[in-house]
Amino acid sequence: MATDSKTVQKIFGEVLRRLRTERGISQQDLALEADLDRTYISLLERGLRQPTLSTLIALAEAMGTDATLLVQHTTEQLDLQK
């Protein structure tokens, strides 16, 4: 059974916030490095928006990680909820 979009957005946002804060990066700094608006980062972290593939890659690069790690952490958290 497929996971609904809102749940994916929420979990991805939690993963993004956790990884960002673990790296000591502010939303503003992440936005500047990823060439995004700070309010968009906030929307992502609150699970109100879902990133495109290019945005996902930009976020990962700005945090010095790989986009697959963001996806992996998200799917792991989704699996824990099942």
Rank of each mutant, 00 (worst) to 15 (best):
residue 17 R to K: 15
residue 70 L to S: 08
residue 32 L to I: 04
residue 39 T to Q: 12
residue 6 K to P: 00
residue 33 E to C: 00
residue 42 S to T: 13
residue 71 V to Q: 10
residue 46 R to W: 03
residue 28 Q to K: 09
residue 33 E to D: 02
residue 75 T to E: 13
residue 56 L to I: 06
residue 44 L to F: 08
residue 79 D to H: 08
residue 78 L to K: 01
residue 18 R to T: 10
residue 5 S to C: 05
residue 11 I to D: 00
residue 63 M to D: 01
residue 43 L to P: 03
residue 21 T to R: 15
residue 16 L to S: 04
residue 20 R to S: 05
residue 34 A to Y: 01
residue 14 E to I: 11
residue 13 G to S: 03
residue 56 L to S: 04
residue 37 D to I: 05
residue 55 T to F: 01
residue 76 E to D: 15
residue 38 R to F: 04
residue 14 E to H: 05
residue 29 D to W: 08
residue 77 Q to R: 13
residue 75 T to S: 12
residue 81 Q to R: 15
residue 42 S to M: 09
residue 53 L to F: 11
residue 25 I to P: 01
residue 24 G to I: 03
residue 36 L to K: 01
residue 49 R to F: 05
residue 36 L to T: 00
residue 64 G to S: 01
residue 26 S to Y: 07
residue 62 A to R: 02
residue 82 K to Q: 13
residue 42 S to A: 15
residue 18 R to H: 12
residue 65 T to N: 01
residue 20 R to W: 08
residue 43 L to Y: 13
residue 80 L to C: 09
residue 30 L to G: 02
residue 6 K to C: 05
residue 28 Q to L: 14
residue 50 Q to R: 13
residue 59 L to I: 14
residue 28 Q to I: 13
residue 75 T to F: 10
residue 68 T to W: 12
residue 40 Y to Q: 09
residue 46 R to Q: 14
residue 22 E to R: 06
residue 30 L to Y: 02
residue 45 E to L: 08
residue 61 E to Y: 04
residue 35 D to V: 03
residue 71 V to D: 05
residue 78 L to V: 08
residue 39 T to Y: 09
residue 45 E to S: 06
residue 24 G to M: 06
residue 21 T to P: 00
residue 67 A to H: 09
residue 61 E to D: 14
residue 52 T to Y: 03
residue 38 R to V: 10
residue 68 T to F: 14
residue 6 K to H: 10
residue 33 E to A: 12
residue 23 R to K: 15
residue 77 Q to F: 05
residue 79 D to S: 10
residue 31 A to P: 00
residue 70 L to E: 08
residue 17 R to H: 10
residue 4 D to V: 13
residue 16 L to M: 05
residue 27 Q to C: 06
residue 33 E to V: 00
residue 39 T to P: 04
residue 45 E to T: 07
residue 26 S to Q: 07
residue 79 D to I: 10
residue 7 T to Y: 02
residue 50 Q to H: 11
residue 43 L to E: 13
residue 26 S to M: 09
residue 3 T to W: 14
residue 32 L to H: 01
residue 7 T to V: 11
residue 2 A to N: 13
residue 13 G to D: 02
residue 6 K to E: 14
residue 9 Q to A: 15
residue 1 M to W: 11
residue 68 T to A: 12
residue 40 Y to E: 07
residue 76 E to P: 02
residue 50 Q to A: 15
residue 80 L to W: 07
residue 40 Y to G: 07
residue 57 I to E: 12
residue 51 P to L: 08
residue 82 K to P: 06
residue 60 A to D: 07
residue 27 Q to K: 11
residue 28 Q to P: 00
residue 1 M to I: 13
residue 29 D to N: 12
residue 51 P to Y: 07
residue 15 V to N: 02
residue 11 I to W: 00
residue 34 A to E: 01
residue 63 M to H: 02
residue 6 K to T: 11
residue 39 T to H: 09
residue 3 T to Q: 12
residue 59 L to D: 08
residue 28 Q to E: 14
residue 18 R to K: 15
residue 4 D to L: 11
residue 59 L to T: 06
residue 43 L to S: 12
residue 25 I to H: 01
residue 9 Q to S: 14
residue 78 L to G: 01
residue 64 G to N: 04
residue 54 S to M: 09
residue 10 K to P: 00
residue 77 Q to A: 15
residue 67 A to I: 02
residue 72 Q to V: 11
residue 16 L to N: 03
residue 78 L to C: 04
residue 56 L to N: 01
residue 16 L to K: 07
residue 47 G to P: 06
residue 47 G to R: 04
residue 47 G to L: 07
residue 25 I to N: 02
residue 12 F to M: 03
residue 66 D to M: 04
residue 22 E to M: 09
residue 47 G to W: 05
